[in-house]
Amino acid sequence: MQETPLCLRVGHFLPYSMSDLNTTDFTNPSTFILVGIPGLEAAHIWISIPFCAMYVIAVLGNFSILFIVRREPSLHGPMFYFLCMLAVTDLVMSTTTIPKMLSIFWFNSREISFSACLTQMYFIHCFSTMESGILVAMAFDRYVAICNPRRHSTILTNSVVAKIGLAVVLRSGILALPYPFLTRRWPYCRTNIIPHFCCGHIAVVKLACADIRINSYYGQFDLFSVIGMDVFFIAMSYTQILRAIFCLPTKDARLKTFGTCISHVCTILVLYIPELFFSLMYRFGHNVPLHFLVLIPSVFHPVPPVLHPIIYGVRTKQIRGRLLQLFTHKEI
């Protein structure tokens, strides 16, 4: 595979010369250099402002969800347990990448050790897969609540919820393991400059002096198997949900029942549409400008952790009420 052009394209974007970096042969680089957003170094300070704001909102919003669910006994149920799992996932996902991105923008702290780079890569893939699995679990919860409401509490017991959560975590951890192991085995003799703001799998292995087709094939397998399988189960759940809704006797009943699914549907759209689009664009968009390949995904990367607590805070009556009580100190 001809990967050299991508490595060379970033040279004129950098504020330092290639001679200043380790470009001699090395089979296990001690550090990588994260460029940030190539071509937009002069605007990094301004770009950092919305990213910092989104990170603060994501942290405060998701911690608020966790705090409210923990403090309110009436929210101790399957739907809110899965929501807490989603909040933890969002916190880890945003913290894995955004602080390092901000350090690049603010302090020009571009270096990242090889081990830290592989760790970041693992966490990115592990928790993005985990987020998808949690949405499947939430779809199953909505299916049971609407199609079999009388048995909801007996089907989704605390034990079952814990087992579902464990299965989601194990699946994510196992599927993400090959990424750092496959990446570590290649020699990197061209450059250690990564034209990105984080150690994405493809961005790193494109620097390798080896045939990386196995990495590409595994990445595509992981993407399509996880998203394909999860979307299939979600679609099956909502097929049954819609059938049950259409069998309800009145329009008001149908709208009220479907309203309980709106938050989940919005969360699905926020996650899957950008993730699928940008994964395909980054893998196959060979003619797309490099700064566009990096800038657009970086803009959408913090969006799900920001929107999830907003969606559930606005759409879920129990959480909305407790939020108002938290900030106004009034009884609801």
Rank of each mutant, 00 (worst) to 15 (best):
Pro5His: 01
Arg9Ser: 10
His12Ala: 15
Pro15Tyr: 04
Ser19Pro: 06
Leu21Arg: 09
Thr23Cys: 06
Phe26Val: 12
Phe26Asn: 14
Thr27Asn: 10
Ser30His: 03
Gly36His: 03
His44Gln: 08
Cys52Asn: 11
Ala53Tyr: 13
Tyr55Met: 14
Val56Pro: 06
Val56Thr: 13
Ile57Thr: 12
Gly77Val: 13
Gly77Phe: 10
Tyr81Met: 09
Ser94Arg: 00
Ser94Tyr: 02
Thr96Gln: 04
Ile112Glu: 07
Ser113Met: 09
Tyr122Phe: 08
Tyr122Gly: 07
Glu131Gln: 13
Val144Phe: 04
Ile146Asp: 06
Pro149Ser: 07
Asn158Met: 12
Ser159Glu: 14
Lys163Leu: 14
Arg171Trp: 11
Ala176Trp: 06
Leu177Met: 13
Pro178Tyr: 05
Pro180Thr: 05
Leu182His: 03
Leu182Lys: 02
Cys189Ser: 02
Val205Ala: 01
Lys206Met: 10
Lys206Tyr: 10
Tyr217Val: 12
Tyr217Cys: 01
Gly219Cys: 08
Asp222Met: 08
Asp222Gly: 06
Met229Val: 15
Thr260Arg: 01
Ile262Leu: 13
Ile268Gln: 02
Arg283Asp: 14
Phe284Leu: 13
Pro289Ile: 04
Leu295Arg: 01
Gly313Cys: 05
Val314His: 09
Arg315Glu: 02
Lys317Ile: 03
Arg320Ile: 03
Gly321Gln: 02
Arg322Met: 08
